[in-house]
Nucleic acid binder design. Structure first.
Lengths: 333, 333
DNA sequence: CTGAAAGCGCTTACAG
DNA sequence: CTGAAAGCGCTTACAG
């Protein structure tokens, strides 16, 4: 590879001039510009990003941290984030943590070694004190989808509470009166806020959700299955079940099939996320859609705004949510 | 951030010694090792990856190029690749090309600017001459999933032909005698090899696939829908349809639903990939499973082997394929 | 074994 | 406007 020095020699100028020209810090007269361009073409010069980054102290790459990129909902967000980052001149490095906090800490440390300019983090557990302090120190972190309480940094969340309300309202409109919830780990905002919204809407109608009608566990398909199992055998079997994530519904549907429990005839369900192909499931899943494109794009915009110091670390952007009606909710009466 | 020079001063040695120690190029006597470790702890030294990379000429990051990471099948592969890369000390930068060859060329150029040590490329079109020559020059590229004819480099593909045979055999075993294929763009090996295998198996049984029973188009859900539409109105309507990718099936199922065509009663289908939740579709999809974990992991292993010069650029690894029987194929008679 | 020095390829104050 | 020089923070022949 040709270096900037070689280009400069070829063109008859100093490296500094070539550098400034290439970075747009300077406007050259046409003749010298041509000489430089010719030298670049002749030598096939392309610049060395590493050297530039070392000199400037910027890596021009953003880290995107998630538990597992193979979960379709996360993949959609990552895809949108990659698109926006690319548009704005940044690369996106994707990291799977498998929910391991040590791995999360390690990735955050890349910020200090300057391998990453910023990191957008989606975490999925509630033991986040260490993360919080490190994030606060780093100040180049955007928190996405799930909260990390106590950390200082911009946040992007869905309108979780509103989502819960929409779910409850839809059940109510279809005549349901007995409810259950299957959720991820208590303490996550995707759990707490969605449940709160759900309850809020019920209470508007003079109804409530007894605490023993909430079944919680890790955000896995298995939890969904266990939840169905649990409520199927409970004395007051609910007709309507709200799940705080679609993958919970996946497990629920599998278990219902195995137990010969008909959805929606025997049990109506509403999920959250609207994962790809939710419309092709048996039954097509009624769910609360989160805008993955907005979630991904907004997180990188906030990230870059933060890097430029234009964005206050205390901002929280909420991404709207909509109910997608399909066929997993039975009309009662 | 503390630098290696500061650590060296603190410990009373030269930066060179610290560097060698940290890289395991040297074994120190316990006392000096302790001094260095103490200095590192005291200063919170972490090393600067950029500087190391500039000095060594290695970026320690691999590029993973796909048309869109949000397609679940690609996301699964990327996830496995990330895992294996991490295990072996490399980061994985994910790039979405949206099938744009210019973007692919751009990413390959990062190899020359040393931003990437190698790239694993999944492409999805047939106009690949320019790609091929660039890849041959770069020599740090692994070709995954779809071929780039003429390019010199290790390849990782599924046992496509075998997959096609399995699909045909399953149809035959279930009594089908009239067949159709919906495929991605002609020329892609995922299309050609799978169709060849399908035909091979038919011919073993004295049957054939007329060329007008192959409907091709871009690898999109839309193509699947158009295919169903096409064959539904054809004079000799097939009972069995093989799709060279599951997303084609997704479109096919949607269209069949819209046209009130029952799968598998009116039309049996077999897909390819076994995308996540294929078992929960209506109907649960019988499909040829590709091992995404192996595809992803093997591609990074070949990549690193290639970087170390241990792997011949002409190797092609084939990943096994299995038929997953579910309920989209009707038993005839 | 250990160190001083040069070099990786840029960028950017500082001078002129 | 343009250039010489220093510096980013490492690594690694080359000496001793």
């Amino acid at each position: 590879m040709a270096s900037i020095r070689e280009v400069a020699e070829e063109a008859g100028f100093a490296p500094a001039t070539v550098s400034r020209y290439l970075n747009g810090h300077i406007k050259l007269k046409p003749s010298t510009q041509k000489k430089i361009e010719d030298a670049i073409d002749k030598l096939g010069y392309r610049g060395n990003g590493l050297a530039r980054r070392l000199a400037t102290g910027k890596s021009e790459t953003l880290g995107f941290v998630t538990t597992d990129i193979s979960y379709p909902f996360f993949a959609s967000i990552a895809s949108a984030a990659e698109r926006e980052a690319t548009r704005l001149g940044y690369a996106l490095a994707v990291f799977n943590t498998r929910n391991d906090i040590m791995r999360e800490m390690q990735i955050l440390s890349y910020l200090q070694t300057r391998q990453l300019d910023g990191v957008i983090i989606m975490t999925n557990h509630t033991q986040t004190e260490d993360l919080a302090t490190q994030i606060t120190n780093d100040s180049h972190v955007v928190i996405l989808d799930e909260d990390i309480p106590g950390a200082v940094g911009p946040r992007v969340f869905a309108e979780n509470r509103q989502g819960g309300r929409l779910a409850a309202r839809h059940f109510l409109e279809n005549g349901h009166r007995s409810f259950a919830v299957i959720s991820g780990p208590r303490g996550l905002i995707s759990v707490e806020e969605r449940i709160e919204g759900f309850k809020e809407e019920l209470s508007v109608h003079g109804l409530s959700l007894p605490s023993d009608m909430i079944f919680s566990g890790p955000y896995s398909e298995e939890t969904g299955g266990l939840g169905v199992d649990h409520f199927r055998n409970s004395p007051d079997r609910p007709t309507a079940m709200f799940a705080t994530a679609d993958n919970l519904c996946l497990g629920a549907i599998r278990e219902a099939n195995a137990a010969n429990l008909k959805i929606p005839d025997d049990l109506s369900i509403i999920g959250f996320d609207d994962i790809p192909n939710a419309d092709l499931l048996a039954p097509p899943l009624t769910t609360i859609r989160q805008g993955t494109a907005e979630l991904g794009a907004e997180s990188v915009r906030l990230m870059l705004g933060r890097l430029r110091g234009e964005i206050d670390p205390s901002v929280t952007t909420r991404i709207p949510v909509t109910l997608i009606e399909r066929q997993s909710v039975r009309r009662m009466d």
